[in-house]
């Protein structure tokens, strides 16, 4: 990514570059290692920074920050578009299930409050924890996302805009970050347990720490959506 700094090349002596956004090696390392940057990753970042010219970090312009924010969302989208999320963020009148996203067994319906229908509520089977005996997954408050929050079929850019659309996701970047950090149904995606065949369900392609670090970067850099 081109940089606009007119400063002569120099050595970095601190981690300010890490805070500029995910466009440099140092920054990417910091991000990839999570929100609570581990001591090891900080050490590696410092080491690399000390051998790279600061010109490559420079003062990120607005355009750079926007591009970095977009890039962060593109990486986030790999998680948001994973079956662990999409199975309950459906645009249809029923949930999906499984890594192949098949229609939920036995004609399970969304219901008027997104928690199933009378006598077949989500909690008829889904409890607060994964059930090892039956393979039924569970987390507190198991439910479908409202239809206005349907994500299936959306490109990363469309998904991003939907999240920030007051009539759809209905969240600001800040509240979205908090939602992704604290919602237990979101956290479940990284502890999905095993299915009824005893097979471990797929987890999203990034760790929860990596994902939340990207979410933080995306928001901090302006919550800019990809095209």
């Amino acid at each position: 990514m081109p940089r606009q700094s007119a400063e002569p090349p120099s050595r970095c002596s601190n981690l300010t570059a890490i805070r500029q956004g995910p466009s440099t090696v140092c920054e990417m390392i910091a991000i990839k290692h999570g929100a609570s940057v581990s001591a090891l990753s900080v050490f590696i970042a410092v080491l690399l920074c000390s051998f790279l010219p600061c010109e490559s970090f420079g003062q990120a312009g607005d355009a750079d920050r926007a591009a970095q924010s977009q890039q962060a969302f593109m990486e986030m989208a790999a998680v948001l578009r994973h079956p662990r999320c999409l199975n309950c963020h459906t645009s249809v009148d029923y949930p999906r299930q499984g890594d192949d996203q098949h229609r939920h067994l036995f004609n399970v319906k969304r219901g008027p409050d997104d928690r199933g229908v009378v006598a077949l509520r989500c909690r008829t089977c889904h409890q607060a924890d994964n059930q090892q005996a039956s393979g039924v997954p569970g987390a507190p408050g198991w439910r479908l996302a409202p239809l206005r929050m349907a994500w299936d079929g959306l490109s990363p850019g469309q998904l991003c805009r939907a999240l920030l659309d007051p009539t759809r996701g209905g969240m600001t970047a800040a509240t979205l970050v908090e939602h992704l950090q604290t919602e237990r149904l979101v956290a479940w995606a990284w502890q999905p347990g095993r299915n009824s065949h005893g097979e471990r369900r797929q987890e999203p392609p990034l760790s929860r720490e990596q994902f939340l670090a990207l979410v933080g970067s995306w928001a901090e850099l302006g919550a800019v959506c990809p095209e």
Binding site: R123, T124, Q127, A133, S134, G135, S196
Partner: peptide, 24 residues
């Protein structure tokens, strides 16, 4: 079935139908 699919184990918990094979 033991996997909450058939409903033979249905009981009520606080008035709600629940598949007792999948609730601890």
């Amino acid at each position: 079935c033991g996997i909450a699919a058939c409903g033979a184990c249905t009981v009520h918990v606080d008035g709600d139908a629940v598949r007792s094979c999948s609730i601890p």
